[in-house]
Amino acid sequence: MNSRNRSLGFGISIGLAGLLLLPFAVGSYAQHVLVVSLYYVVLASSWNLLAGYTGLFSLAHHAFAALGGYTSGMLAVHAGVPVPLGILAGVILAGAAGYGLGALTLRMRAIYLALATWAFAESLRLIIAAEYKFTRGDLGLRVPHLFGTSNPRVHYYIFLALALLTVVAIRALLHSKIGYRLRAIRDDEEAAATTGINTVRWKKFAFAVTSAMAGMAGAFYGHYIGLLSPVSIKFTEMATIIIMVIVGGLRTISGPIVGAVFVEVLSEVLRLSGEVRMVLFALLVIVLMRLYPGGLMAFVRSVARRLRRYTALREVPASWQEKEIS
């Protein structure tokens, strides 16, 4: 173990301790905002894996979150299934549905894929709204809370664990052979197939894994809020996820985390109406795409690089600077 690893380990422990103690430093409303941020960290990170790293620009990610939520919620309400078991069912169903949608859209080019996934999401929303006997439609379905509590501090720890699990899993996946296969498929599917990558299998795999992650987030979130509504499958929700990922930085591991927390916390700090907020964030995305396509993380990194140039730390060996895989 060299000194670099030791200092990295130290940094991670400090960060983790900070995250664990955070709920004690802030009030319950801020805790709630953090829970929502962490929920979006899971969604944004997993969508980034699908769209950014595998090149499958799906517009149904929010629908899989809702699918997980509704599966678990309806099992609890109509069949009396214990909440944790229902969540598990939600994750499995969302993953299976993702696998199915992946299989269905296998042959599609980028634009067809976006259109087909978007149509899938819209239809799911319409079906949930129409089947009001089971889903209570637009009125919303009341579901029990996980562990019978809506205390944001408890759920903060749950979502912290989920977000960490997701991000660590995605990081490990991207650094493994599978990650290289996914990126190869994104960059040139035919070339990837030529080198012996089973593109069909890995595309379906990417869809299944990311949809299961979204379903997990959605199921836990439903049992935190205690209310499910088809509004969560509106396209605005998908746009929010995209905004978060782009603001943070597409095709970076830290980008979606930074973007989700930045967008969610800034929304609360600004205390503007939802519409004004969305106008501002949409503008921010357009400006970033036009001028700084790497997102905020690329911006921060370039500023850091410039700062480093002014300080004596210029002689840092290249291996010290952790490179982000893109």
Binding site: I111, S273, M278, M289, R290
Partner: peptide, 22 residues
């Protein structure tokens, strides 16, 4: 390009829709 066009026009849609409410 696909990605750029999709993201920019989705953002435009969010922008105009919310601007209309404002």
């Amino acid at each position: 390009r696909d990605e750029y066009a999709t993201i920019v026009t989705i953002s435009l849609s969010v922008f105009f829709r919310n601007l209309a409410v404002v």
